[in-house]
Design a protein around this nucleic acid. Structure first.
Lengths: 153, 153
DNA sequence: CGCGAGTGCTAGCAGTTGCAAGCGCTCTGC
DNA sequence: GCAGAGCGCTTGCAACTGCTAGCACTCGCG
């Protein structure tokens, strides 16, 4: 019995460790895959929102259209420079793409509120107006799950 | 006398033109070199400020030391991910390195603009709307020239 | 002196990035 | 029907990125 228990325990432990390692790897792969596929899907969604073909965006961004296609499908991982060019073509900020690509950390939600409140060039009334609009926008986004909002986090 | 003056004038002019061209080329090279060599030189200067050897930084950053050496000497251009790792090893913000590498623009004068652009809970359209209103408010405040009197608006 | 530890760099290589050439498809006009 | 324009994608390739193995050098110690 004791020798049976002794032999089963190491096996169980090994199995659990392997399971946990597998889980971590799977989890890490999921996170990595999410970041890579996320930026491509986001670029495509922004492009479709702008009602622009892949070739048109490739041209205005100064990127080859096959490469842009590969990026959108998650087959390639673009450099920051390419993301910058794509952002220019989409007329959005490069920072937005960097955040989704995991290059740049996202800002906590309160940063906007804090920044507005601390801005010395605004009157108190203007601050309230801006923050009201900001709150409204975010409420809308929570309810409607807009495609441009990554909800997978 | 007159013939001496005539011969000295053209020579002086040619020399000045050559000098100006050389100055422009030198200036352009300096600007380009500044971005590429700038990030490497900056990393080296930060490393020396921290009194850390190249190998120590490479280890804490999780980067190979030959590659870090090449980066510092401007022979290679690191990706944003590598810059992120180096920033971690140097205990400085990745953004500081991104700015010097030309990946990220310098902070806008307004913290509000920065925060809004980086906010992932807003769509790109909403960001533009908010920033347009923000710009309008600030323009109004500039015209009325009453920065210290918020209640008059 | 020799040795070990540490230094920064060279050279070659595997994998990745971004491109050009080209494909098959759809739609429109003649 | 055909030709042309546009669409998104496949494939192969050159250049680049980041690494490993190893080198020459300096310094301190016995």
């Amino acid at each position: 019995m004791n020798s049976d228990d002794t032999q089963e325990r190491p096996t169980e432990r090994v199995g659990q460790v392997v399971e946990q390692v597998g889980h971590v790897v799977e989890h890490a792969g999921h996170a990595v895959g999410q970041t890579v596929e996320g930026i491509g899907a986001y670029i495509r969604s922004q492009r479709e929102l702008a009602d622009v073909s892949l070739r048109q965006l490739a041209r205005t961004a100064g990127v080859s259209n096959p490469y842009l296609s590969q990026i959108e499908r998650g087959l390639r991982k673009p450099s920051a420079e390419i993301l910058q060019q794509i952002a220019k073509g989409l007329r959005i900020s490069a920072e937005a793409l960097y955040v989704r690509a995991g290059i740049l950390d996202e800002r906590p939600a309160s940063v906007v509120t804090d920044a507005v409140l601390a801005d010395p060039t605004l009157t108190e009334r203007q601050k309230q107006v801006l923050l009201d609009i900001y709150s409204t926008f975010r409420r809308e986004n929570d309810q409607s799950v807009v495609p441009g909002t990554p909800d997978k986090e």
